[in-house]
């Protein structure tokens, strides 16, 4: 009985501490960032950029996001909880803009400026958007792929998600560029691996089996790209791989020549610019509505150049 009471006591004490934690945070300007994810390396890099800006401008930044990019409802809950704390401004990377519209209107009514980041929000409510142009970035990946396979042959895509903005944009950006520019390149398969390394590995092995003449594969995010590289290594087949984002494994694969190259966004920049814009908006300063945080193609040759190394993460 004593132990049970002790457990209950500890729990309620913890709950008390947690609730006081929030009130303490109110002293500084408070800016919550609701992202699309949290555990992925990419988001950790965004968070690093946000933290850097937070330190620089002396504001309190929190960073949270759902477990995976299909959990629209979880993200809406997070946004609604963040709004309830009456923040100075809010950073938001929408998984589904439509679903978030009512809450964004609520933010607008409460005069809380919203800064969209990563993929943007389909709405005129956000004061600014700090994002990578995913379609243009994927088009660059397609262009590099075309050059590496000699402008003809079969190509496949392993995409991380079928419904999210980034998944759709990167897929369409790649496919549309090929269709418009390289009629001799066939896109023979588009599979979705959820960004799961193991699943993407199995998909790649099957693709190589099903299409023996496959010349290139595009992996649309870190997990997908690593999966593609793994699958190619396990089957031992030669195939041109273009990845996306960075991370230690992907960087290693590029150094080893297993992967031809990858698109990198500027996640640190996204985080930094989002917080910076939020602070400015909260103070009522004018801001540029579209902040292009940029993207780069990197391969063995420029991976260690200062410009690229600065935006890569492990």
């Amino acid at each position: 009985m004593i132990t049970r009471r002790m457990i209950l006591g500890t729990l309620s004490a913890a709950a008390l501490l947690a609730s006081t934690g929030f009130t303490l945070a109110q002293d500084k300007m408070y800016i919550p960032l609701i992202s699309k994810g949290f555990q992925h390396q990419f988001w950790q890099a965004v968070k690093a950029g946000a933290d850097k800006a937070a330190a620089e401008f002396g504001v309190e930044v929190t960073f949270e996001g759902p477990d995976n990019e299909t959990m629209v409802d979880r993200q809406i809950d997070m946004l609604s909880a963040a709004l309830a704390k009456k923040p100075a401004a809010i950073g938001f990377a929408a998984l589904d803009s439509q679903a978030a519209t009512p809450l964004l209107k609520q933010a607008e009514a409460a005069k809380i400026p919203v800064i969209a980041f990563d993929s943007g929000v389909d709405s005129d409510i956000p004061a600014a958007t700090a994002a990578t142009d995913n379609k243009a970035a994927a088009a660059l990946a397609a262009e590099k792929m075309a050059a590496l396979i000699g402008d003809e042959g079969d190509v496949a895509l392993v995409v991380h998600d079928q419904t999210s903005r980034t998944g759709v944009d990167r897929r369409d950006g790649f496919v549309e560029w090929i269709a418009a520019n390289k009629p001799k390149i066939q896109i023979v398969a588009i599979e979705y691996g959820g960004g799961d390394h193991l699943k993407s590995t199995e998909i790649t092995k099957t693709l190589l089996q099903a299409h023996p003449n496959l010349k290139g594969i595009f992996g649309s995010n870190e997990g997908s790209a690593i999966g593609v590289a793994n699958g190619a290594r396990e089957t031992g087949k030669k195939v041109v791989i273009i990845g996306y984002d960075s991370g230690a494994a992907q960087k290693q694969a590029i150094r080893d020549g297993l992967m031809a190259g990858a698109i990198t966004q500027n996640p640190v920049g996204i985080g930094y610019e989002t917080v910076k814009a939020a602070v400015m908006a909260a103070k009522g300063e004018p801001i540029i509505p579209t902040i292009d945080t940029g993207f780069y193609f990197y391969d063995k040759s420029n991976i260690d150049s200062p410009e690229i190394a600065a935006v890569l993460y492990d």
């Binding site: 555990q39 992925h40 477990d67 799961d196 390394h197 193991l198 590995t201 997990g223 690593i226 793994n230 494994a249």
Partner: peptide, 10 residues
């Protein structure tokens, strides 16, 4: 061992 890494989010 398959992924040469422990992926904490999987």
């Amino acid at each position: 061992s398959r992924l040469n890494s422990a992926q904490p989010a999987l």
